[in-house]
């Protein structure tokens, strides 16, 4: 029996009093479209409360296309929002490229260096290159952005 002092349990209990339920995710036809990422089925009412997305797979590193973009493509038009989405996809792509760069140069012998560079040193080179690129375009460089993000008002109260 569920604990009735818990509003969620109480709600479940009352909702399921009238008819037996088919667990969510198992109720639909087998041939229906599935989610992009596999999910587990819903828990039974008597089962322990599931953890936050315990079985949820990690988000895909580089999403290929968004649903919105697909639908807009179908309609033959592209909105400004899609442009924003592309920027984000590009960000994810650059992130992956940066990882590749670090993998490529870390722990490798490089001419002119006495020691093999660590991953953090290669990361620092990348950051320095990025800052130079930002500065050359008149954009704020990274330290200011970090300082802004760490403003006191941002702290958990």
């Amino acid at each position: 029996m569920s604990d009735v002092s818990d509003p969620f349990a109480e709600f479940q209990q009352l909702q399921r009093r009238s008819a037996p339920r088919i667990p969510s995710g198992q109720s639909q036809d087998a041939d229906r479209p599935q989610a992009a990422s596999p999910t587990t089925t819903g828990a039974d009412s008597d089962a322990p409360v599931p953890q936050i997305n315990a079985a949820r797979p990690p988000a895909p590193a580089i999403p290929t296309a968004t649903a919105r973009a697909e639908e807009e493509e179908e309609e033959g038009r592209v909105s400004e929002r899609r442009g924003a989405g592309r920027d984000i996809l590009l960000g994810v792509y650059i992130d992956a490229e940066m990882d590749g760069f670090v993998d490529r140069y870390a722990d490798r012998r490089i001419e002119g260096l006495r020691k093999r560079p660590s991953r953090s040193l290669v990361g620092y080179w990348l950051m320095a290159l990025g800052m130079e690129a930002l500065k050359s375009q008149g954009e704020p460089a990274m330290p200011r952005a970090i300082a802004k993000r760490r403003s006191p008002g941002d702290r958990v109260g």
């Binding site: 969510s24 995710g25 109720s27 639909q28 036809d29 041939d31 229906r32 479209p33 599935q34 989610a35 990422s37 999910t39 587990t40 089925t41 819903g42 828990a43 599931p50 997305n53 315990a54 079985a55 949820r56 649903a67």
Partner: peptide, 17 residues
């Protein structure tokens, strides 16, 4: 309707897209 309802990333929550 049943074919259109898709399980979401949240365990126990489905979506009619």
């Amino acid at each position: 309707i049943r074919q259109a309802i898709v399980p979401s990333r949240i365990v126990g929550a489905d979506v009619l897209y």
